[in-house]
Write a protein that binds this DNA or RNA. Structure first.
Lengths: 131, 131
DNA sequence: CTTGACCCTCCTGTTGCTGGAGGCCTCAAA
DNA sequence: TTTGAGGCCTCCAGCAACAGGAGGGTCAAG
């Protein structure tokens, strides 16, 4: 049994984050007599699981799903794969969007002399109604 | 003079968004006698400017800076270039992060058979303490 | 017995809006 | 002239995913 500070340390997250996860019912520890949170080994495993999933960009709600699949020993791997696949698509879409963005900004950025004179293609680009 | 609905239409943003921009002091229209917002031509130009800058991923605060530079006819283009350059770096960093993310998720995703059996490398990967 | 490190709950703030409630204002049709 | 449909107004709540702080209880060491 760990109290919240130790569980935070062990899982690499902040105390505030663990409070939050309890509040939203993601990982709800038991309580000691004095009211302190008591995290079990299992709780800490879950926290580590979540920590890694969050690090991979899964939303907290996706973590909740993954966690319930993690705990369901009879679940099909297809269910998990579906969630991961969807997330993968989202990430790929985001990358493409950002790449397009980069090109546009880079373009404006490159065209700007960046000197003390007021003429600036970036500003002009943003002000023009084309695009 | 346009009222808020027309200004929203003209700038391609929602009425709520214009309310918000007024609240944060970004574009503050005058008022008509009846209390309705009265957007001038200049206001609408600014809104269009902001709309495009936001579309390029500039934060609202960056928009505020760009806008003040936009209005300052004597500003140096270097000032604008600096903001754009910083944003460019952020975007590039984000792209790299997402690419790394994609590889990791793709890896797990590819390894998972995605059938009805419970064994799943994705879950295993998230549950293992390595990485 | 006191000090300092924990722990607790509750509230606010973050970013950039969106949606809704409750209530005027305005214009055109009946 | 009334009535109905829009629009407009302000204020409040909420989204994600926490962080920070106030104000207070608890615990172990010196």
């Amino acid at each position: 049994m760990m109290n919240v500070g130790q569980a935070a340390e062990a899982s690499g997250m902040s105390v505030k984050t663990l409070h939050y996860y309890e509040e939203i019912g993601l990982v709800v520890p038991k309580r000691q007599e004095n009211g302190y949170r008591a995290y079990s080994e299992t709780d800490v495993h879950k926290l580590n699981f979540i920590h890694r999933a969050r690090g991979l960009g899964f939303t907290v709600e996706a973590c909740r799903e993954l966690l319930s699949l993690y705990e369901d020993r009879s679940r099909a791997s297809a269910d998990v794969k579906a969630i991961a696949g969807q997330h993968l698509e989202e990430v790929e879409t985001k990358i493409e969007e950002l790449k397009a963005l980069r090109e546009t900004i880079k373009d404006l950025h490159d065209k700007c002399r960046g000197d003390h004179r007021p003429d600036c293609p970036i500003i002009n680009g943003l002000a023009s109604t084309t695009h």
